[in-house]
């Protein structure tokens, strides 16, 4: 996930100071993802350097307040509208299959079995998370992600079954 676009999204709604940005970003992810403060702060500095975000004076206290610039808004729009390149080998298991076949790895069957088990465990985890979120407000976006995650995992399982069939396991 891109911290950069998370920050730009939040600043598109209202100016924030550094710590507030970190907390809001974590809340947006239902506190499931703890951010390293250094990662957030260095990203803000880069966004300021690139003129996508600017500091504004804060009369109430000494904390630096950040707001998005016109360029920053255009950057978010561009990012939202551009499709993401699909890179199959970003999935390590795709790459593992490639390497295992190259080595004629004799435990390919076990490798697929274990990966199937891991995928099914993940599916059950998503089921529980979905159950938890169904009872909370403002969870629609995360429920969409869970459905997306389930569809990906479903495809992974079908693909592994296909390899098993082709390999005669």
């Amino acid at each position: 996930m891109s911290v950069k676009y998370g920050i730009l999204t939040i600043l598109s709604q209202s100016p924030k100071h550094r710590y507030d940005l970190k907390v809001t970003l974590e809340n947006m992810m239902y506190k499931q993802w703890t951010l390293n403060p250094g990662q957030v702060y260095s990203t803000i500095d880069r966004l300021v350097r690139d003129k996508l975000v600017e500091e504004v004076s804060n009369a109430e206290n000494d904390l630096k307040l950040y707001q998005i610039t016109k360029n920053g808004r255009e950057e978010v729009e561009r990012w939202l509208q551009n499709p993401i390149e699909v890179l199959l080998l970003h999935d390590e298991f795709f790459f593992k299959i490639l390497c295992a076949k190259r080595l004629n790895f004799d435990l390919l069957n076990k490798m697929i079995f274990q990966q199937k088990e891991a995928v099914i465990k993940k599916i059950l985890q998503l089921h529980y998370l979905r159950k938890e979120l169904e009872n909370t407000a403002e969870s629609e976006a995360m429920l969409y992600l869970i459905e997306g995650g389930l569809l990906h995992l479903e495809a992974d399982l079908k693909w592994m079954d296909m390899i098993s069939d082709l390999e005669g396991y």
Binding site: M1, W33, M142, G148
Partner: peptide, 14 residues
């Protein structure tokens, strides 16, 4: 169960 779960989903989606 939910440790890093969302990160995993997002990685999967990306």
């Amino acid at each position: 169960e939910n440790v890093d779960l969302i990160t995993n989903i997002l990685e999967k989606l990306n």
